[in-house]
Design a protein around this nucleic acid. Structure first.
Lengths: 216, 216
DNA sequence: CCTACCGATCGGTAGG
DNA sequence: CCTACCGATCGGTAGG
């Protein structure tokens, strides 16, 4: 009576309606949009369904719950960052170049997938504990990549020896994660240019010779 | 029949129960706490009332609506910043000292009134248009103070001449507003020490002599 | 401040 | 995917 469940074999997709994954991705898109605009709790599943021209109850054919949709949106929101950062850190170039590339790459998703990023940054705290922890792990992976490049620069004698990689990472990610807050209402709209300026400022600080402390 | 309404005379508080203002402040405190933890839409007026040991409906004796409570919490959330920043900018010391003081002062409310600050940062977007604009004006005032000090330093020949005050302000406020995101779960708990490190990094960047661009 | 209450909406289920 | 529907909760009002 009990058959082997076809969805368990990862590679083979037999007997499943072909559009399922695609449609689920469209729902995630719509959810990201509404979550970003209204916040998770301010968003109604009705509004998500309206965006797709489907009935509210039909969403539950694709997602078991509103929370699961938030989880998916947040997952997509982080995953891009870690992957590109990993590629940069492992690639060629010196620590200074890597750091600049890391910073530029970090802000690209803000333009490409603004809604996912915003939801990840602002709404992840409304996730249930277990999935919040799962997402948080990815976030920490990203931070560690920044720290590693910073440490690489210090060890190579390129960055100032008194650089604290952890604090510096917090500062940099603060600057960068603040971008969605003003992106869109700033006159200068070239995010890449602005982030390049951020990177220059940071590098100038990292490359500077230690100065006198406390000098008026 | 129509009497002059006593609450219109600002200085004189006659005929009003004496604890009104105080109680309203307590409600704002509780609201800030719940809004910070659950987000505005995730917060129920019931939970706020529970915190105060009063009935949910009684809240409406002090605030006309949930939105009005959010507005009050946000208003308190910004007002501290502008006032202290103004005092620093107008006070003595050079631009470098002022900038450091500005940065340290900006993070103090994060410890003192964490909930108000968090709510202002994360929930102000859920305010109705008109009050959001009112709050936004205060926010811009703060930004202009930072920009002015930065420009002061450039004009005095202290900060690098290629400093862009606007971009620099966005970077600094990004770093600083990111503090509530990691404050509490970071090992090093001395926010002042961390922010001092942020300020040093920033100053090193601002004081550095222009270097060769694009040098490998 | 409380009691009593309401209309609206919300996430989610049953069954096809 | 849809129809039909539900229990719970929510912000807010009336009247004292």
């Amino acid at each position: 009576m009990r058959q082997a469940r076809p969805e368990e074999g990862a590679a083979k997709r037999i007997g499943r309606p072909r559009g399922r994954r695609r449609r689920a991705a469209e729902i995630a898109d719509a959810a990201a949009q509404v979550f970003a605009r209204r916040g998770y709790h301010g968003a109604s599943t009705q509004e998500i369904a309206d965006l797709l021209g489907m009935r509210q109850a039909s969403l539950y054919y694709y997602f078991p719950s509103k929370e699961a949709a938030l989880e998916e949106v947040c997952r997509i929101g982080v995953e891009g960052f870690v992957e590109s950062a990993l590629a940069i850190a492992a690639g060629g170039g010196g620590p200074a170049e890597k750091l600049t590339a890391l910073m530029t790459a970090h802000t690209r998703p803000v333009e490409t997938r603004a809604d996912y990023v915003r939801v990840f940054l602002n709404e992840r705290r409304h996730l249930p504990v277990d999935s919040r922890r799962r997402i948080g792990r990815k976030s920490r992976r990203l931070e560690r990549i920044f720290e590693a490049v910073l440490k690489e620069g210090v060890d190579a004698g390129i960055f100032r020896s008194d650089t604290e990689p952890r604090l510096c990472t917090l500062a940099i990610l603060g600057m960068l994660n603040g971008v969605p807050a003003w992106y869109g209402r700033e006159k200068r709209a070239d995010v890449d240019g602005i982030v390049a300026a951020f990177a220059r400022l940071t590098l100038d600080g990292l490359l500077a010779a230690p100065r006198e402390r406390g000098a008026g």
